[in-house]
């Protein structure tokens, strides 16, 4: 059974310049203990998708519409704000890019961690304190008990992100949504954090939705991949399929533009020309057409739908040969 099912998500923001269409009708689903990576460049709509699932987009400016949004058998769109709040942080954990801005600088780490136990799990303050120490220990922070009295600024960037993860897993969520969790970290620390996430996932069987721009991180931990471009899903499938039998020219170009450490010199780089489209003025055809090397006349007629191009693999390109 699918743990998370999202169908036909549209998100638009009203701005001074008009309506910005950030997400244009995307579907995604996630099973228990599966890792789905949502990949894309800035402005592709990947973070907005994560925030829409969490119900964290500002009500005043964001217009969110979806055909279906189900989590663990419940219809999230039918829940009240209060019911959503009870679910966030408990059944769905969240980790954000910058742990400094998601932690309260004037409260101790211990206070912030034990609050979760008190609010979501109905613990007493003393039990919540022990629970907080266990959590810090679980994410590999030495002398966990003593460090509960410290403030966020007394931790290094990698440590703070561990605290962020500790907070996210405090209630053993079924789903962890992580938005660029390692982007602000050094590579050796990133490797530690990714390893930690994998361990916790194996232990707790939680599903992870990882939002990232880093294709290396995707290759390291994702089971399935969803590639977004200008608010649409342009390719999705198992990590193997997307990386080795890439269907969409955008994904292929993206993979080509990352210099690889494991290969000898590959000649001149082949960057993607131009820049991503303006979401205020999306053209009628394929949004990647203006930058695509393989563009044809029919690309400008309409956004091609996702077509099946292999087992557990779909791509949105007129060149994809649909397989039955």
């Amino acid at each position: 059974m699918q743990l998370l099912e999202l169908e036909g998500l549209h998100v638009a923001f009203s701005t001074d310049r008009g309506e910005a269409k950030a997400v244009n009708g995307i579907d995604l689903s996630l099973k228990e203990s599966e890792t789905l990576a949502v990949v894309g460049e800035s402005g592709s709509g990947k973070s907005v998708t994560a925030l829409a699932i969490l119900g964290l987009l500002p009500k005043r400016t964001a217009m969110v519409r979806a055909d279906a949004l189900r989590f663990d058998g419940r219809d999230l769109m039918a829940l009240s704000e209060e019911q959503l709040r009870a679910m966030r942080g408990k059944d769905i954990g969240m980790v954000f890019q910058d742990p400094m801005t998601s932690l309260n600088p004037v409260l101790t780490i211990g206070r912030q961690l034990s609050e979760i136990g008190e609010v979501h799990l109905g613990m007493t303050r003393a039990t919540a304190q022990d629970h907080a120490a266990d959590l810090l220990d679980q994410v590999g922070i030495p002398q966990a008990k003593a460090r509960l009295r410290d403030y966020p600024h007394q931790f290094s960037g990698g440590m703070r992100q561990r605290v962020g993860i500790a907070m996210a897993i405090a209630c053993k969520p079924k789903l962890l949504i992580a938005d660029e969790p390692t982007t602000a970290l050094d590579v050796t620390v990133q490797a530690q954090v990714l390893e930690l996430l994998a361990e916790l996932q194996a232990e707790m069987r939680m599903a992870i939705m990882l939002v990232t721009h880093d294709l290396g991180v995707v290759a390291r931990i994702a089971d399935r991949v969803l590639v977004m471009y200008a608010g649409s899903v342009v390719e999705t499938g198992s990590a193997e399929a997307v990386f080795s039998r890439t269907g969409m020219p955008y994904t292929r170009a993206l993979l080509r533009s990352v210099p690889r450490l494991d290969q000898a010199d590959e000649g001149p780089l082949r960057p993607i020309r131009g820049s991503p489209p303006d979401v205020m003025r999306l053209a009628k055809g394929c949004s990647f057409a203006p930058r695509c090397d393989l563009v044809e006349a029919r690309c400008h007629l309409g956004q091609p739908p996702l077509a099946r191009c292999g087992p557990d693999h779909q791509a949105a390109c007129v060149l994809v040969e649909p397989t039955a």
């Binding site: 590579v187 490797a191 290759a219 994702a222 990590a239 690889r260």
Partner: peptide
Amino acid sequence: AIPVPDPMVERQRKRIIL
């Protein structure tokens, strides 16, 4: 520590976690 954008390579790699 640096991930390579290829799941097949990633699976075979031996990690040195500092």
